[in-house]
Amino acid sequence: MSVYFLCLVLFCIGLYCILRKRNLIKIIIGIAIVEYAVNLFFILVGYRMNGRVPIYSPDQTIRDMVDPLPQALVLTSIVIGLAVTALIAAIAMRVYEKYGTFDITKIKKLKG
């Protein structure tokens, strides 16, 4: 149970980072932390105590495996996270090019 709670703590740290930090790069790091917290939680949901690696190999029977489905799904979600992070980083770099700053309090052309 405590590991799930730690995932929640990690998730909240990420959210805090997104909401409170003013630097664009730190916000991107916050997004990454949130994604990792969710992925970690997903992996832990599929875990069983003293489980075996879910790889089918010739000399082993299928017994006591941890749930392989979350691992496959988390792999997909990591790839999605990679694409999102790359895209947001590129946008942040271009924002820096145009505004000359990473501070979100100084980037406010849009209002109303």
């Binding site: 790839v79 999605i80 694409a83 790359a86 895209l87 590129a90 770099m93």
Partner: peptide
């Protein structure tokens, strides 16, 4: 490098 103007990377 960030030389080309548009960016469209996806998985």
């Amino acid at each position: 490098l960030l030389k080309i103007p548009k960016k469209g990377e996806k998985q």
